[in-house]
Amino acid sequence: MKRSRRFKRVAAKPKPKKPIPATALVDADDDEETRPLQRFEGPITELSVDKMAILPFSFFQIDALDLAPRLLGKFLRRDDVVLQITEVEAYRPNDSACHGRFGITARTAPVFGAGGHAYVYLCYGLHSMLNVVADKEGVGAAVLIRSCAPITGMEIIQQRRVQKTDKPVLLTGPGKVGQALGLSTEWSNHPLFTSGGLEILDGPEPEKILVGPRVGIEYALPEHVNALWRFAVAGTPWISAPKNTLRPP
């Protein structure tokens, strides 16, 4: 499989990524899941989402820093709710901001599982934060889903969020995404590459992305605080604050 360009570990200017042709995103060891990841033009509709394949297990078996930008434009689906991923953050091994720094505990054990599983934790005891585990089993890395755009199930999203609005405030923040999907920590370890429950579907690769430092990790080492490991779709309003720290790569 052709690998996407890896972003640098620290806050140096990363080199621009080249778009990955849809026909190149094929995993040779997927058996019946072996297929080109689909590219769709024009507005996303419920019909086009229904045609999109669930991303295979092997899609997630890469470094979190490679996986994070590749998740932009993909879809999270739980029952009638479909969200398109617009902003993410990478958390890696030996990263002083990663939950894996604590080692394997009852809370962090899912982070050390195989890539493609969910890791959901509570922030401030209130907000369910959805992460996608990255890399091979035992590595301890994940990608936090920071923001999404709604595709289907708006009424359910609004009910769960207790907000009757269709503005970006509805889904711009990781706690809001977890609430919109109706998640709890019981979803940790859920396989996102299988049908049923919570799934990640293929979606269009963004034309342009933005990068910047991660949010709310002031406790981490300076090289990790400043690392450009936050990624967002350029040109969309569905991005969380602060936006002024995001720049083209």
Rank of each mutant, 00 (worst) to 15 (best):
D63W: 02
I62N: 01
D66Q: 15
L47E: 12
L47N: 01
D50F: 10
P43S: 07
A68Y: 05
S58D: 15
F60V: 03
F59I: 13
E46M: 11
L55F: 13
L55N: 11
F60P: 06
I44M: 10
Q61H: 02
R70I: 07
L71E: 03
V49F: 05
F60N: 03
L47A: 13
I62C: 07
M52E: 14
I54C: 08
L71K: 03
F57G: 00
I62G: 00
L55R: 09
M52C: 15
I44N: 00
I62W: 02
P69H: 09
A64G: 13
S48E: 14
L47W: 02
L65K: 06
F60Y: 15
A68E: 03
F59G: 10
D50R: 15
T45F: 06
A68F: 05
T45G: 04
D66C: 14
P69A: 08
M52Y: 01
D63V: 00
R70D: 10
P56N: 10
P69F: 08
R70M: 14
D63Y: 02
L55P: 13
F57S: 10
S48L: 12
L71A: 02
F59P: 14
M52D: 10
I44Y: 00
L65I: 11
M52R: 15
Q61E: 03
I62F: 01
L65F: 01
L71N: 03
L65Q: 04
I54L: 11
E46S: 15
I44G: 00
P69E: 05
F60C: 01
S58P: 06
F59Y: 15
K51L: 12
E46N: 13
M52H: 10
D50A: 15
T45Q: 07
A53I: 00
F57E: 14
P43H: 07
M52A: 15
P43T: 09
S58F: 12
R70S: 11
L65C: 05
Q61R: 03
L72S: 06
A53D: 13
F60L: 03
P69L: 08
D66E: 15
D63L: 01
A68C: 04
F57H: 14
D50H: 13
F59T: 12
A68I: 07
M52N: 11
S58K: 12
V49P: 07
L55E: 12
P56A: 06
V49T: 13
A53W: 02
F59D: 11
P43F: 07
L55H: 12
L55A: 12
P69G: 09
I44F: 00
